[in-house]
């Protein structure tokens, strides 16, 4: 289509002290694509996502978001983060605020919306996903699945162009995973550009435009889900998928 990619990582390296976690990542994500990152724990999935929204500075390479390089010195970090939403495995809701305030805080303080405006938008968003009646509750009153869905909606309230999901179902009881995946599926079908680190292979197979297998800090293999899951080329990919199948997760 010739349009600018939503996200491009070029030769990204990241080390923590002596340990090199990302050893040269090259990744391109087009607008409205869903790219799933799969791989063992420690392969660098979370670090990759955290580098994209500049929570972690990279050591080498470039990250380009919608044509603008964000890894140059002097970039307005807060501005960059307004356009990128990230949701973490541990939800990270603000425990001292109600659901409504959690969702409306950033639109008010960062986007400058009035309280009425931000809260009305938040209520509408919560309502669309069945959480409107929880708006005056504190997070400790919600189930894990509800908390995670609120966390996703909190990121969405900022109307990001790119959404990063870091294993958002990994800390949930199995029966709560479904409601979160349903929300993510709806977002994907609505055209949100997403990079999703996940262990949910069924989800990746159904919704991803592309699946990337991360192993020891590099993208070992990437391609359409049909190819990756049915005909993986690399032995390490085959090993990883065999273990997943044996564990009954595919």
């Amino acid at each position: 289509m010739g349009s600018v990619p939503a996200l491009r990582l070029e030769r990204v390296h990241k080390s923590f002290g002596k340990a090199e976690v990302l050893k040269g990542i090259d990744l391109e994500v087009e607008e409205h694509q869903v790219v799933c990152l799969i791989g063992a724990s420690g392969s660098g999935k979370s670090t990759l996502l955290r580098c994209v929204n500049l929570l972690e500075p990279i050591d080498d390479g470039r990250i380009v978001v919608r044509g603008e390089e964000i890894t140059v010195p002097g970039v307005d970090v807060n501005q960059v983060r307004r356009g990128i939403g990230i949701v973490f495995q541990a939800f990270n809701l603000f425990p001292h605020m109600t659901v409504l305030r959690n969702v409306s805080l950033a639109p008010r303080k960062v986007l400058g919306q009035s309280r009425e405006q931000a809260e009305a938008a938040a209520v509408e968003l919560l309502g669309r996903f069945g959480l409107a009646d929880r708006r005056d509750d504190y997070p400790d009153r919600l189930s894990g699945g509800q908390q995670q869905r609120v966390a996703i909606l909190r990121a969405l309230a900022m109307k990001p162009k790119l959404l990063l999901l870091d294993e958002v179902t990994s800390a949930l009881d199995p029966e709560l995973v479904g409601e979160v995946l349903a929300l993510v599926r709806e977002l994907a079908e609505g055209g949100m550009t997403m990079v999703v680190a996940t262990h949910e292979m069924g989800f990746a197979r159904d919704l991803a435009d592309r699946v990337c297998f991360l192993d020891a800090g590099v993208i070992l293999e990437q391609g359409p889900p049909a190819q990756i899951f049915s005909e993986p080329r690399e032995p390490r990919t085959q090993q990883f998928l065999a273990r997943i199948v044996a564990a009954g997760r595919l």
Partner: peptide, 13 residues
Amino acid sequence: PSQAAAARSLGLN
């Protein structure tokens, strides 16, 4: 630190 990370990720300075 995940609280501060979540806040910064939303664009709060």
